[in-house]
Each structure stands twice: as C-alpha cells, then as structure tokens.
Design a protein around this nucleic acid. Structure first.
Lengths: 144, 144
DNA sequence: AAGAAAGTGGGTAGAAGTGGGGAATTTCAT
DNA sequence: ATGAAATTCCCCACTTCTACCCACTTTCTT
C-alpha cells in the first residue's frame, strides 16, 4: 500500500524519480495517466490491467461513454523506470498535469498521484479548512 | 494494448509515421478506415478481421445500421508500413478525417485513432468539462 | 566518522521522427 | 498505343529525443 508525501523535481530532460519506498511494489514498469483535479495518476501494471479491462468492456455506442474511454486510455502511457528509478514524462502529460519543476508525489492506497507542488499545497490548505465537514463525512462512513 | 497520445506530422507526400511503440503489435500491414466523430481508425489485421465478420453479420434492416456498415467497410483500405514505419494515407481518408499537417495519434485499447491535432485538443477540453460526470463513472466502475 | 542509499544532473550513442531525391509504376489525355 | 503527369516506393540525410551510463551531493544508518 502506498502512503506518504514526497517532494521531488522534474529535471530538464523531463525525468522524475519515484520515491524509493514505492519501487518494490511498483515494479519497473508503470502506467501514468491523467487523473482528477488536474494531477496525474500512477498505477502499478496489475492495478491498471483490471482498470483497463473494465474500460474495455463498456459499450461504445453512446458518445459520452466514448469520450470517457478516449480520455482515460489516450491519457495513459506505460513508462519504464530507468536504473535510477526515474520515469520519463511525455510532454502532453506534463502539460495536462500543470507540472513544472517541483512536484509532490503522494501515495494513495493502490496508486500514486503527481501534483505540482504549489497546487498541492493550496489543495491541502483548502482541504484543511473543510476538516469539520470531512470529519462528519468520516463519521457517516464509520471511520473514527 | 494501445494507449497514449502522440503528436506526429503528415509530410508533403502524405506519409505518416506511426508511433514506434505500437509497431510491434501492429505488424507491417494495417487497416485504415473512417471512424466515429470525424477521425480515422487504424486496426491491426487480426482485429479488423473479427470486426469485419461482425459487421457482415449485422441485420441490415435498419437504415442507421446500414449506413454505419457502409461507412466502415467502404472507407477501409489496407496499407503497408514502409521501412521507416510510415503509412501512406489515401487522399479521400485524409480529406474525410479533416487532416492537415499536424495530427495526433491516439492509442485506444485495440485500435488507433488519427485526429487533426487542433480538433483533438478541442475534443479533449470539451471532455474535461465533464470531469464531474467522469468521476461518477469511475465510481460506478469501482475505480478509486 | 564512514559507508550506503537516495535524489539530481549531465554526456553520449542509438533510435525515432521528418524531409527529400530519384527510379519505378500507374493514370490520364492525346 | 504513346507520351506526359502524377503517384508510389526505396533509399539516404538531418534533427530531435530517448536510453544508458557515470558522477556529484545530501541524507540516513551503522
């Protein structure tokens, strides 16, 4: 399980080191894709395969579904880790994720998220303002 | 499985390089045809054969089905990759797909799609407006 | 304090994408 | 049928990007 928050940098060659703590569980090949809230998702291959299978079995007749599948699959790319544990980010993902030099890598159960550091900090502050509300929700979910 | 998004160009001789990542899985002969939403579809031979069989056995009673089959089958052409991994696009497909110089090649599970880059970007932006809806869909699929 | 591990940066050979010349083939009009 | 024009195919050339290797610095561990 992936947990924790790490500050890394994208170098001039668009390479990004993944936290060493995650490498064992990730293997040496991962899937990077556009996520929600303008960040990127990183999946281990096994998790991705389940997800892709679900996508592949959706009916393609309806335009909305078609566009959904397109965005998910088109936004995804498989990347290999180099000998230093870095991935090479395609330009379009770097762009769509709003990433510059400083990024924050967040572990979330079965995936990672890659955020622009500034954006992540804003998001966190915003989230903290809603702590009370979140606590309520947690309560409803039976989490204490 | 084909995934990802690649920016390529059609040269003055109407040649288009397919992304090298896809070449192994495509083989050196593919089918190009008119797709949905004003783009082109590219199928590996095996996938096309299955698809063509299905199309051939569809009931032809309904006008919509008939026209769909016509567009798919009539527009289809088989093209070989040259030694640089490029295909030669027939003029009518280039025209019907609204393709100019800059195109985006998208990997979508078992096929590729070829889009005019400007059109693809508009499509993507449009799709992203439906992020909320997409998030719901993700939930339904059990994706977190 | 010394060694190991992690993150970052850079050089370089090879691969990938793009463009163009010229021969061979096809198409079309004469 | 024949010549002209266009198209297709096969090379080769150039530029950019990527993969692989090595090196430096900082942090953590022993």
């Amino acid at each position: 399980m992936f947990i924790g928050e790490y500050s890394h940098t994208i170098d001039p060659k668009k390479r990004l080191a993944l936290p060493s703590k995650f490498r064992g569980e990730l293997g040496n090949k991962v899937i990077v894709t556009r996520g929600l809230d303008n960040c990127l998702f990183v999946y281990p291959m096994k998790v991705w395969e389940e997800l892709a299978t679900k996508l592949g079995t959706l009916p393609v007749g309806e335009a909305g579904t078609r566009s959904f599948i397109r965005v998910m699959l088109a936004g995804a790319t498989d990347v290999e880790l180099d000998s230093q544990g870095r991935i090479l980010l395609p330009e379009y993902l770097k762009h769509d994720g709003g990433l510059k030099k400083d990024v924050t890598i967040v572990g979330l159960f079965n995936r990672l998220e890659i955020w622009d550091s500034a954006k992540w900090n804003r998001y966190k502050m915003q989230a903290e303002k809603n702590t009370g509300k979140i606590a309520e929700d947690l309560g409803k979910l039976g989490i204490y």
